[in-house]
């Protein structure tokens, strides 16, 4: 009986102290960590069309189309299929593809989540945070060659 009363006292204490844990989301934009990974932003000015992001993407979310002179024509990214692993940002040598903190995306059909380079360019910063300032990816580690023979592949 004492245990039951103790439990009831605990919940009553919570009811009376008036503290809540709710974030009133649509009215209040929640705080997001500087490292948070959201929808991508693409900069055509920076991109050198090396296709490393397309290559590293684990589930073929990125599709790059080039003309016969290897000039970039299209940069498509399916933000609905993306698993937000941030490997594309990590491999990009020129910070052309970044993951903003923007986590809000809605559409009526899946197809609308296929973003082309214009749409990717227009993705807004979340609360004006440029993730490049808050993250410092260790590129030295990424381009490591190991201790053995150099592997030029």
């Amino acid at each position: 009986m004492i245990g039951i009363l103790k439990g009831m006292a605990t919940t009553m204490k919570h009811a009376l102290d008036g503290k809540t844990f709710t974030v009133e989301y649509p009215d209040v934009a929640p705080e997001v960590s500087p490292r948070f990974r959201g929808v991508h932003k693409f900069s055509q000015e920076r991109c050198i069309w090396c296709r490393q992001c397309e290559n590293v993407c684990p589930n073929d979310t990125i599709q790059i189309v080039q003309d016969d002179q290897r000039n970039g024509e299209q940069y498509n990214l399916h933000i609905g299929q993306c698993i937000y692993c941030r490997l594309c940002e990590e491999v990009c040598p020129v910070d052309a593809i970044l993951l903003t903190q923007n986590f809000e995306f809605t559409a009526d059909t899946k197809d609308e989540f296929v973003y082309n380079k214009e749409q990717l360019k227009n993705v807004p910063w979340y609360k004006g945070i440029d993730p490049l300032n808050s993250r410092n990816p260790d590129r030295g580690a990424w381009i490591g060659e190991g201790d053995g023979e150099v592997d030029y592949q």
């Binding site: 009553m12 919570h14 009811a15 809540t20 844990f21 709710t22 009133e24």
Partner: peptide, 10 residues
């Protein structure tokens, strides 16, 4: 409202 009060919600 009552359930929310007990569970720290609004």
């Amino acid at each position: 409202k009552i359930t929310a009060a007990f569970t720290d919600r609004i």
